[in-house]
Design a protein around this nucleic acid. Structure first.
Lengths: 211, 211
DNA sequence: TTTTGTGAACTAGTTCACAGCT
DNA sequence: AGCTGTGAACTAGTTCACAAAA
């Protein structure tokens, strides 16, 4: 059986990404086969959970044997939509934006940063260390539409985030990853994820208090 | 009644942080009182959830009236352990580390970045734009112990993360916020949070695929 | 025999709905 | 009258345990 897709929870989707990272790690170690049991032990995950998550998308294992690392990895890449390189733009050419633009996580493995945008004349026309150009944010819509860009990453100040997100929606991106410390919402048809880096820090602060 | 603290879930802890951000926003708008209903409508949160979360820590509202913004904010600051400034260090003085070191989110509201650390001789001895010094990572343990630093933020490459986390544990930090793309674990007594920025990006990729 | 894939059982998290204060 | 605080009902997510397959 294959491809029964109800609505997949964010929990499952997040773990797929974790599994992919773990498999890449096994692959570089030269491990070719792995059981859910061994996989779970190695990366501190639940074997039952692994099997359930994977079974949502098909039968990728062999009973009595386990999973073939390279095969499972290919499947996960395909499930996550990373099979072909996805072009994205980053709005906000501050240090976070520049760090992300040049980071291996954002440039390798399924993503390519097409351009950065900013409204600061001193930044417009420059490029990042890795050579990604910084454009005027006024050209955002044009470049997104022309380049068939599906994802916009927002690394602008909180005050600008809502307006910039609006422009992205208008330019027909399919997904927005917002790092500005405001909780944005997007219309149906656009997937938006808020990532506020201050939250894990405050959460940490909460848990390290004396009982 | 007040202060029944079983174990508070990460979900609740995360929302406390969200509520705090939302209250700050109301405060700047000059709003002094708010009901869970109005609060929820304004920030797209569930009123029942808000009441339940808050009730875990005490009775902060007034029946028939609602919550006083400034009072609730003070309580949340205290609950999250942000009442006195917490000093933290950032290990890894790359662009992400520097961006976080100088970002208002990390420097205001309960946190102070005491120092950055790196192993690159070109970076050691310099300081960030905001004037935070970059030390040799060899001095990490010494400075953490002397400065009674409770939190270490890791912005090092994946390959160095485990070793650096070990040093932090040895130096007796209470919490580690790991941005390196490896899932680390810490011994009991040390709270560790992994934040892999590639995961929300891959999750986004998953959800924006055609059905 | 081993290990997957999966319904059933369980646990955690959320929402409902109303008693209890103000 | 109005809104909180909270047990009870519900929903979502995880783990168990075993039949099915290699």
């Amino acid at each position: 059986m294959s491809l029964r897709r109800q609505t997949v929870s964010e929990f499952t989707a997040t773990r797929l990404s974790i599994y992919l990272r773990a498999l890449a790690s096994l692959e570089t170690e030269g491990i070719r086969h792995v059981s859910s049991e061994a996989f779970g032990r190695r990366f501190d995950l639940s074997p039952a959970q692994i099997r359930k998550d994977l079974a949502t998308f098909g039968e990728f294992g062999v009973r009595g044997v386990g999973y073939e690392v390279s095969v499972l990895k290919k499947h996960l890449i395909s499930i996550l939509g990373l099979g072909h390189t996805r072009r994205l733009v980053i709005v906000g050419a501050g240090r976070l934006g520049q760090a992300l633009a040049d980071s291996p996580g954002f440039t390798s493995a399924g993503f390519a940063v097409a351009a950065l945008f900013d409204n600061d004349p001193k930044k417009i026309g420059t490029e990042t260390r890795a050579g990604i150009p910084v454009h005027d944010v006024e050209k955002l819509s044009e470049i997104v539409k022309l380049g068939s860009i599906a994802i916009a990453v927002l690394t602008v100040p909180a005050s600008a985030a809502r307006e910039v997100a609006g422009r992205c929606v208008e330019a027909r991106v399919k997904g927005i990853l917002n790092f500005a410390p405001v909780r944005l919402t997007a219309p149906p048809g656009v997937k938006l994820k808020n990532v506020d880096l201050k939250i894990p820090l405050e959460t940490l602060s909460f848990y390290i208090q004396k009982p």
